[in-house]
Amino acid sequence: MASVEQIGLWTSFLLTLMVFSYLLGDNLLYRLAVFVFAGVAAGYSAIVIWDGILIPWLHDTLLVPNATLDQLTLGAAPLLIGLLLLARSWSTRGDGLSRLALALLIGVGTAVALDGAINGTLIPLLFDTGEGVVAGNLDSILLPAGVICTLVYFQYQARRVPEGAGRRRRHVQLLAVLGQGVIVITLGAIYGAAILTSLTIFSERLGFVVQQAQVLLPTPTPTPAPGA
């Protein structure tokens, strides 16, 4: 009888082949593998969230023996917010209450995003880019210049010309063109790195399929030569 590990290897082997069958075109096997993946991922996410976040929270608040009113309120608040978010789909009357729950989430989410953008990205990157200029070599000047050109490319302010269209100033246009070049090179390098990464993964999968095929399929026994 096959062990659990062997069943696992068989499953992995078959699923890899099912996914790779997409190279022949969209087909039933590929779709089955993708739906299995979606189901397993959904199941895992539910378990991880339930075990790692919700159960500890409930144990610390609602399920505490002799819980205080504060603990009960705190424990029930997220459940109430979840129910209020659902209220919109139940009836149009729940729309207003649902928006209040959404407002709380948007408010806190905005604060977290703002803090992350300012303290996590903007200030460290600006300081780091600026510090490089002190080094004084060509690269340390090209780096901030490239950053400025990239940012200029993404701004769309322009003067309105008599024909009604907008036109950028010449020097802004020049900086934007340089910025476009920097962005194209960046995306090209990221694209190349993505190809290298997927090539590595593909060769690993292919190696696994070949190795499993050798193990799973019976190897032909050499027939003895006549007269031997």
């Binding site: 990205t121 993404f154 920097v182 962005i183 990221i190």
Partner: peptide, 14 residues
């Protein structure tokens, strides 16, 4: 250039 472009894109997102 790639470093500059990546920083520019991240700053733009921020």
């Amino acid at each position: 250039p790639v470093n500059a472009g990546a920083r520019g894109i991240l700053l733009g997102i921020a």
